[in-house]
Simulated scan of single mutants.
Amino acid sequence: MPNKIRLLLSILLFSYYGQAQNYTVHRQNKVYIGLFGGLNYSKPHVVDDYSVLVNTPQSGSDPMEKHYEPLFKNKGSQYGLYLSFSFTRKFSVVFEPSYQTSSFNYRTAYWWSDTVNGSDFAMEMMHQQKISSVNLPLMVRWDFTVNQFSPFIQAGIFTSFRHHARKTIFYDYTIDESVDKKSADRTQEADLTEHINKANFGISAGAGLTFFSNYFAISLESNFRYGFRSQVNDKNRYADYTGFSVQYLDVLDQLKLMSLDFQLSIMFPIDNSISLGILRKRRH
């Protein structure tokens, strides 16, 4: 029975999609305004390495090395406004101001051997950074069709302004290249804002699919962004605003941040004339 239901739903979906291809949506000179929200994943591009301690020949491998988490382990979120204007049926300009929280994590480990008392001490830490900012991306969009279901690509530039940054360290006493945040000890969340540069800019590009109707549109899209400016304020790198530099021997590397977001938008058309916004059947 479940297989028959799935088959029926598939037939209805393809039937509706096929019928939708017989319709076009007049979008020229039309303004869309709406809301969007979604998730993002970040990955740092390390430009320069920094550490509190200096390595010695007796240290062997570098004990201060940071191991950064992969892209999909660094999750954040964003929400904002969607504004667009269509110059032609397929070409439009999109502005998506948003409030975004991005994160990146790295792991460090330290160990000491007391040769006098014959005792050792080890600690492994997961450093979690979260940066909240106001993003202002401006992109040009190209729709491949004028149908109800319209795939598109878009590209442009963005600027961002840091609002707030914070940091938490999770730690345990076993060096096994893993720190379980659920069971590990943790610090209080500390203010990292002064360690992060106030503004950034970069490029953005993405793709998606939009469903258009007479009265609204729903869009699912994904965008890649890369910031050209370094994230960390070099003047404040060794300033111990968080209190972690001395206690946990922590200092940030210099890095640039890239991100991949997934978001869902709902938009409403604002017509410039009575004739715009009419869903009409394509003439064969």
Rank of each mutant, 00 (worst) to 15 (best):
Tyr68Cys: 04
Arg225Ile: 01
Arg186Gln: 11
Tyr171Ser: 00
Leu39Val: 15
Asp48Glu: 13
Leu81Ile: 15
Gln188Thr: 13
Arg280Tyr: 08
Met125Asn: 05
Leu13Ser: 10
Gly18Leu: 04
Gln148Ala: 14
Leu209Gln: 02
Thr187Arg: 00
Gln78Cys: 02
Asp49Leu: 11
His164Trp: 09
Glu65Tyr: 13
Leu264Lys: 02
Gly227His: 08
Pro44Thr: 09
Glu194His: 13
Tyr226Arg: 06
Gln154Phe: 05
Lys30Glu: 13
Asp271Cys: 11
Glu96Ser: 11
Val134Met: 15
Ser265Leu: 05
Pro44Ser: 07
Gln254Arg: 11
Ser92Pro: 05
Met139Lys: 08
Pro269Thr: 05
Val232Tyr: 05
Glu189Asp: 06
His26Leu: 12
Ser133Glu: 12
Tyr50Lys: 10
Val232Asn: 00
Tyr17Phe: 15
Ile266Trp: 04
Lys30Tyr: 10
Asp271Thr: 13
Glu189His: 01
Asp250Val: 12
Leu249His: 08
His164Phe: 12
Asn135Pro: 07
Val54Asp: 15
Val146Thr: 15
Gly208Ile: 07
Gly227Phe: 01
Asp48Asn: 13
Tyr238Ala: 03
Ser160Asp: 09
Gln129Leu: 14
Ile196Ala: 00
Asp234Trp: 03
Ile218Arg: 10
Asn223Ala: 12
Leu220Pro: 01
Asp180Gln: 03
Ser42Asp: 00
Val54His: 12
Tyr99Ile: 14
Met125Arg: 03
Asp143His: 13
Glu96Phe: 03
Gln129Arg: 07
